[in-house]
């Protein structure tokens, strides 16, 4: 080994070149961050690099999905029968409610025609699986197993069977990254379903908590009120359930009340979510996304 040589002879030269390389790479880093932060100039680069790290994501997800598969395939027969019965009941109930839905949607369309307003109730959907990959314990973000190849786009709304889950923030070739509505950097426009009061639901960084910071002390909101998406942000289509008001505290002397809501979707337990394709994708507001990143 030439360890002792390099200490004396090449010493200062090696140090200089080390410092030089460090400065150069630092400059590269800063320019990359700048380009990435402003207008997402590097989405192509990110996409290409994501192909390289895809195997790592798959490898991390593998034990979890293998365990789920194993659990499914060794499920007890009695459990399966019980689950089958339960699902059957749920399906019957859902179909029963769907009967009314058909009539209501036709009626709704007719009324909207009378009002000369557009309506979009049937959106195309794509089922995606959540990969068991933990991005950052302090952010509510997750990775989906659908990417550019499946037509996923930035700003796409994500739902589960209970309600709104989040939106896509970056798309790779075969995966995409999504942010939950409870992420501290996320906000979405909602209306109180009972009376149509518009407000904004802001994430808290705590899964299972949303804040409604812009409701006045006298606003007509009650505990248990359902909040649905208003469609004003042009990311989430209107009318999907978002959260239920959990706590309500009016603060005399302050401009706004303290309102906490609980998301209706099973944010931390979701294995499968739905990506929504609707006509709003044409004019997704670039500003919204830039602010979100």
């Amino acid at each position: 080994m030439a360890v002792s040589d390099s200490k004396t002879a090449v010493g200062s030269r090696a140090l200089e070149s080390l410092a030089l390389r460090f400065v150069l790479l630092t400059l590269v880093c800063f320019s990359m961050m700048l380009a990435d932060h402003r207008d997402n100039h590097l989405s192509r680069v990110r996409q290409a690099l994501s192909i390289i790290v895809y195997p790592i994501q798959l490898a991390v997800d593998f034990p979890f999905s293998a365990y789920a598969w194993l659990r499914d395939s060794t499920e007890d027969r009695t459990n399966l029968a019980a689950e089958n019965r339960r699902l059957d009941q749920a399906l019957t109930e859902a179909e029963f409610r769907l009967q009314q839905f058909e009539a209501l949607s036709v009626e709704n369309a007719r009324l909207r025609e009378l009002l000369d307003a557009t309506s979009s109730l049937d959106d195309r959907r794509l089922v995606a699986e959540v990969l068991s990959v933990d991005l950052d314990p302090y952010r509510q973000r997750f990775v989906l197993n659908r990417g550019v190849d499946d037509g996923v786009f930035v700003g796409q709304a994500i739902l589960d069977r209970h309600g709104v889950v989040g939106q896509v923030v970056s798309v790779a070739q075969w995966t995409s990254e999504a942010v939950l509505i409870t992420d501290a950097d996320h906000a979405l426009p909602v209306v109180v379903n009972r009376n149509g009061l518009r407000t904004i639901a802001v994430g808290t960084g705590d899964q299972g908590r949303l804040r409604l910071p812009y409701l006045t002390n006298t606003a007509d909101v009650e505990v248990g009120d359902l909040l649905v998406s208003s469609g004003l942000g042009e990311v989430f289509p209107s009318g999907y359930p978002v959260a239920r008001v959990l706590e309500l505290q009016s603060r005399p002397g302050q401009a706004f009340a303290d309102v906490i809501a609980e998301p209706v979707s099973a944010l931390d337990r979701d294995q499968e979510v739905m990506l929504l394709f609707s006509d709003i994708e044409a004019h997704v507001n670039a500003v919204d996304i830039a602010e979100l990143r």
Binding site: T26, M32, D36, R46, V53
Partner: peptide
């Protein structure tokens, strides 16, 4: 770079931190 892409951070964020520490 791999870490940046993997965690969805700004491209260059973890990179800068890592090269500083390794330097």
């Amino acid at each position: 770079l791999a870490l940046d892409v993997l965690t969805g951070d700004l491209l260059g964020q973890n990179t800068l931190a890592l090269i500083t520490v390794v330097f």
